[in-house]
Amino acid sequence: MDQTVPGPLWQPTTLRRIPVVVHVISDAACVNGNVTDALVHSQLTVLNEDFRAVAGSPGGAGVDSKIEFFLATVDPSGNPTTGIRRYCNTTWYQDQGSYWLTIAWDTTRYLNLYTNSAAGSRGYVPFLPADPAGAVGQPQDRVVINWQAFGRVGPVVPYHKGRTVTHEVGHYLGLFHTYYSGCGTATAPACYTTGDRICDTPPNATSHKGCTASTSCGGVPVPIQNYMELTDDACMTGFSAEQVQRMRCTLASFRSTLAQ
C-alpha cells in the first residue's frame, strides 16, 4: 500500500477503538523516565482529541478519523489490567537490549507504546505497516516515545502537548511525513504515487520546525498544522481527510485484528 486508496470504502463511517498498553521504562534507579499515571492518562486524552478532532480541543480543526484509543483493561492472559506497565532497567531506558522481546503484549491485539529515551530522538516507529521488510504483528511492532515528549503537560517545551505520540501513531497507522520524497506532483493522479502519496496535503520539500508560516515547492504554504510535519506541538491541529482514509485502510489491510 505505497499509495492511498481514497474513496467511500475508507471513509470514517464506523468507530474503531484500539487498546493500548503503555510500557513505562525508566532507568535502574526508577528516576529518569518515571512517567506518572496521570501523564499517561493525559496522553490518551490528547490522542483521542486529535484523532477524533474533538470540537474545542487543540485538534478540533482536523478531520475526525473515528479512531479512538483506550488503555487496555484486560491483559493477554485475560486478567484485569490498568494498561500501564513499569520497568526500571537502564539498558532498556537507553532503548537498547531488545526489550520488546521480553515485555511486548500481543501486537496483533494491542498497540504497544513504550516510553524511554528513544535513543535520543523524540520518538519513532521501526517501520510502516506496508513496508515489505516490516514485521507487523511481531514483538518489534511498536511505537517508541521519548519520555520528555510525552503527555500534556510534558516536561520539555515545545514538545509538551502530546503531539509526538499523535505523529508517531500516524506512522504506525500508515502515514508518511508530509515531506516524504520531497515535493512530488501536486495534482491527481500522480500525487498518489509521489511525495507523501496523498493529494490533499500540500507539496512539501523538507521538514520544518517551529510555527513560522513559510512556503515550499514553488510557493505553496508549508502544512505546519499537519500532525505529520515536525513542527512544534502548539501549531499542529489535524490530519487531512485522505490521511484519515489511509489510516482506515491500514487498519483494515494490515492491522485487521487490532481495533474493536
Rank of each mutant, 00 (worst) to 15 (best):
Arg142Pro: 03
Asn146Pro: 03
Thr166Ile: 11
Pro158Leu: 00
Thr166Lys: 01
Ala130Ile: 15
Ala188Trp: 14
Tyr180Asn: 11
Glu168Tyr: 00
Ser181Met: 12
Gln140Gly: 15
Asn204Tyr: 13
Phe176Thr: 10
Gly170Val: 14
Pro158Cys: 00
Gln140Ser: 14
Val156Ser: 02
Val165Ile: 08
Thr166Tyr: 01
Ala188Gln: 15
Tyr180Ala: 12
Ala119Tyr: 07
Tyr192Arg: 08
Arg152Pro: 02
Asp196Lys: 07
Thr194Gly: 09
Val144Ile: 13
Arg122Glu: 06
Trp147Ala: 03
Thr115Tyr: 04
Gly120Met: 01
Gly134Asp: 13
Asn116Leu: 04
Thr187Asn: 14
Tyr124Gly: 07
Gly174Leu: 12
Pro139Met: 15
Glu168Asp: 05
Pro129Glu: 06
Val143Glu: 03
Val143Asn: 01
Pro189Phe: 12
Pro158Gln: 00
Thr166Pro: 04
Ala135Ile: 10
Thr115Ala: 06
Asn146Val: 05
Gln138Pro: 07
Val143Gln: 03
His167Val: 12
Pro126Val: 11
Pro139Ile: 13
Arg152Ser: 06
Pro139Gly: 15
Ala118Trp: 02
Arg122Gln: 11
Ser181Ala: 14
Val143Gly: 00
Pro203Thr: 10
Val169Met: 01
Gln140Ile: 15
Ser121Leu: 09
Arg142Phe: 10
Gly134Val: 09
Glu168Pro: 00
Ala190Gly: 06
Val169Glu: 00
Asp141Met: 12
Ala130Leu: 11
Arg163Tyr: 03
Tyr159Thr: 03
Tyr180Ser: 12
Thr166His: 02
